[in-house]
Amino acid sequence: MTSEYGSAEPADVLLVEDNPGDIRLTKEAFKDGKIANTLHVVENGVDALDFLFQRNDYADAPRPDIVLLDLNLPRKNGDEVLAELHEDSNRRRIPVIVLTSSEEEMDVVKSYELCASGYLTKPVDPGEFINMIQELEQFWLSIMRLPTDTDLD
């Protein structure tokens, strides 16, 4: 999606989520919101890091403009993904929004300590979830200015 605030280029969004229902709702939000950005999905922390570091099966993956990251993931959890991203001087600049069911204050604090750009608790109601994804897209991909690949060299 584009606006007078943001880039005219569609963004690559990486969704790191293992819940099929939440994946379906996120895809629905992008479709219903007529969001022109490309949604990539991986279902565990190891695949997320492979995608982000463009290795193994994801060697040709695009560098995402933003990551939507669940905390409760198989193989490597969201905190481990955040920690590894933070260690890399280029990839730490990719905005990561934690999108999780946890309302625990300790999870919020830890996510921000690991340099998450934001923390959202998933609403239980599917309609509210879809609205939240559409608002998140509007803010982060239409209004906010994100670093470009040339900013990262």
Rank of each mutant, 00 (worst) to 15 (best):
T100W: 09
F30C: 11
P126T: 08
T38R: 02
T100R: 01
T2M: 13
Y112E: 05
I130A: 05
K122N: 14
K27H: 07
N56H: 10
N90L: 09
D50I: 03
G45M: 06
Y58N: 01
I94K: 06
R92W: 13
G127A: 15
F139R: 13
P62L: 09
Q134H: 14
L69S: 13
S101I: 11
L114I: 06
N56I: 07
L99V: 02
E80A: 04
L120E: 08
N19C: 12
V98G: 11
A116W: 05
P74A: 09
V109N: 01
E80S: 09
F30E: 07
L49T: 13
E104V: 03
A83L: 12
L71M: 00
V96M: 04
E43Q: 06
L120W: 03
E80F: 15
L14T: 14
S3K: 06
M1R: 14
S142D: 14
F51Q: 00
V108W: 04
D79A: 08
L52D: 08
A61W: 09
I66C: 14
K110F: 00
Q134W: 14
L39P: 11
P147D: 15
R93K: 07
S3Y: 12
D22Q: 03
A36T: 10
S111N: 10
L15M: 02
G127V: 08
S142H: 15
S142F: 15
E105R: 05
M1P: 13
A48V: 13
V108A: 00
D88F: 04
H40G: 06
L69T: 09
L14G: 04
T150Y: 15
E4Y: 10
S102M: 00
E113A: 01
P147G: 09
E128Y: 12
L68S: 10
D151G: 13
Y112I: 01
D125F: 15
I94R: 12
A11W: 05
N131R: 12
Y119H: 03
R24G: 04
G45L: 10
P74T: 07
C115I: 00
P20N: 01
K34H: 13
L82S: 12
V13C: 04
D149M: 06
R93H: 07
V109D: 00
K27T: 15
E113K: 07
L136D: 09
N19M: 15
V46G: 00
I66Q: 09
A83D: 14
N37D: 08
D50V: 01
P64C: 12
D50G: 04
D32C: 01
E113N: 00
L82P: 12
T38H: 10
I133L: 13
A116N: 00
K76D: 03
N72R: 07
P126L: 11
K76S: 12
E28R: 02
C115F: 14
D60Y: 10
L73S: 02
D125P: 08
N72S: 08
A116K: 02
L14R: 12
P10L: 10
T150R: 05
D70Q: 14
D149Q: 07
E9A: 04
I97N: 11
E9L: 09
D153M: 08
L71P: 04
I66W: 11
E137T: 15
A83M: 07
Y58C: 00
S102R: 05
F53N: 02
E137H: 13
E105L: 14
E84G: 14
A36E: 03
K122S: 05
